[in-house]
């Protein structure tokens, strides 16, 4: 999967906005939006929020976790963060700090992911449960991990074949 596709999927997340216009409920195939009243916060998908923001029709309320104090170890979405930071950095307090923090968290989490991938391979486990990983994280390591698991599977089936052959000739 392309990182851009991951970003596209992140746009389905909802975010709270405060519109400065009024509009009745709009009915779309993907769901109903609104109604919008000036000053009243509503939940909308990110793609709409960004669009309105770019036309200066709303103010985006940053998600609760997007604060310097809270960005410690909660699961977060890299794609969403990047979208909000690039398009609505004026609505987010301490955007620069958050950007650094998010990058730090990303690095730590990737290092952790690699560590667990290594132990996964080392112990020759057949399956693993990857909880709390964001799509973007999975996506960066996907091709590599899949290919190496494939190779390891083949080398392992060698092992079984070798030993079963040996047993067979003993009979």
């Amino acid at each position: 999967m392309d990182p851009l596709e991951v970003e596209f999927l992140a746009e389905k997340e909802t975010v709270k906005i405060i519109p400065n216009f009024s509009l009745d409920k709009i009915y779309l195939i993907g769901g109903d939006l609104g109604p919008f009243n000036p000053g009243l916060p509503v939940d909308v998908p990110v793609w709409l929020a960004l669009n309105l923001k770019q036309r200066q029709k709303c103010r985006i309320v940053p998600p609760e976790w997007m604060e310097v104090e809270k960005l410690e170890e909660i699961p977060f979405s890299m794609g969403l963060t990047k979208l909000l930071l690039t398009h609505a950095s004026d609505n987010i307090p301490k955007a620069d700090e958050i950007r650094t923090l998010v990058k730090d968290i990303w690095d730590t989490r990737i290092a952790k992911l690699r560590l667990s991938a290594d132990s996964f391979i080392r112990e020759q486990e057949a399956h693993a449960k990857l909880d709390n990983l964001t799509l973007m994280e999975i996506n960066t390591i996907r091709t590599f991990l899949l290919d190496s698991l494939n190779c390891m599977y083949k080398l392992r089936s060698n092992l079984q074949q070798g030993s079963s052959k040996g047993q067979f000739s003993n009979y």
Binding site: T140, S148, M152, N158
Partner: peptide, 23 residues
């Protein structure tokens, strides 16, 4: 069986380095 085992162990042993350098 020893050869197959050695192949697998070599792969596993070298995995971390391949992964880290490629990433």
């Amino acid at each position: 069986p020893d050869i197959a085992q050695a192949l697998l162990q070599t792969f596993i042993g070298r995995f971390r380095r391949t992964m880290d350098s490629s990433q």
